[in-house]
Design a protein around this nucleic acid. Structure first.
Lengths: 137, 137
DNA sequence: TAAATTTGCTTGCGTTTTGCAAGTGCAAAT
DNA sequence: ATTTGCACTTGCAAAACGCAAGCAAATTTA
């Protein structure tokens, strides 16, 4: 049901087949900001994703190895979603989206602030963030 | 009809509102490879976009300043589509998608070849390509 | 300890978008 | 003068989306 049907061998096309919709990268964004999220956390985001769409996207991203589910340490009722290495590797892409948006939209102040850091040392930022997102604690 | 309804002020979300679907970035890709395309050129691409979807996406991308229409020098029956500066500025993003795909998919040989160039000197590649895509001839 | 609430989903259903095929109007070639 | 090419548009069935409600298991509250 959430299996990948590739339209072609083109790398852009293959990538879009996984996360090329209006919601998937927002899920990835939330996980990059928060490192881990519960199902309810995603629902709270500004864009107000519908719960059935969220469920299907989480399934899709998990099936394709971008995110993983983990038990919540505090409660069996909760589930923790995290980025895999494959998901964390989307960070450079997310940064470039931000840089493009910075040029053509008026960004909120907090986005601006993070971007200033990125502009100072993109490679360093990616390195540090990657470590932060991947170390289990 | 193709006007932008922003879901939030988040830069990722705002960007996805413009080109965050399964087809738009493939149109941008074609224009980055070919510099200019006719309507028919887009239809010939491997992914086989439906003609009505193509028309609506071209309209959307033009409305949002990513591409422009021009008269074809040889014929009034043809139309040339090109990237604007805003469209060309998506190049770093397209490169990062390719680099991500390179890590997680088996790429076709020609994609691989271009990526090798990119890896040697990413900044230089972007600079050269930007110039090439923007100069009118 | 029984009842209410939280959590992570699923289900139904009306609306919108997609995808395929066929059609249209103008330009250009024959 | 007629056929072909090109850039779309239209119709319609199928799929995806979006909203609200429902549900089972876990947790909290009374």
């Amino acid at each position: 049901m959430d299996d990948l049907k590739k339209r072609s061998d083109c790398p852009i096309s293959s990538s879009l087949d996984i996360w090329g919709d209006k919601w998937s990268l927002l899920i990835v964004r939330d996980l990059m900001f928060s490192k881990q999220c519960t199902y309810g956390d995603f629902l709270k985001s500004d864009e107000k994703i519908a719960t059935n769409i969220l469920a299907s996207r989480l399934q899709m991203l998990e099936t394709n190895g971008v995110i993983t589910k983990q038990d919540h340490p505090d409660s069996k009722a909760k589930v923790l979603y995290k980025l895999t290495q494959k998901g964390v590797d989307l960070l450079p892409l997310m940064i470039e989206i931000n840089l493009w948006a910075d040029k053509y939209f008026k960004l909120p102040a907090d986005s601006k602030a993070i971007l200033e850091e990125v502009k100072k040392d993109k490679e360093g930022f990616i390195r540090d963030q990657t470590v932060a997102l991947l170390n289990n604690s």
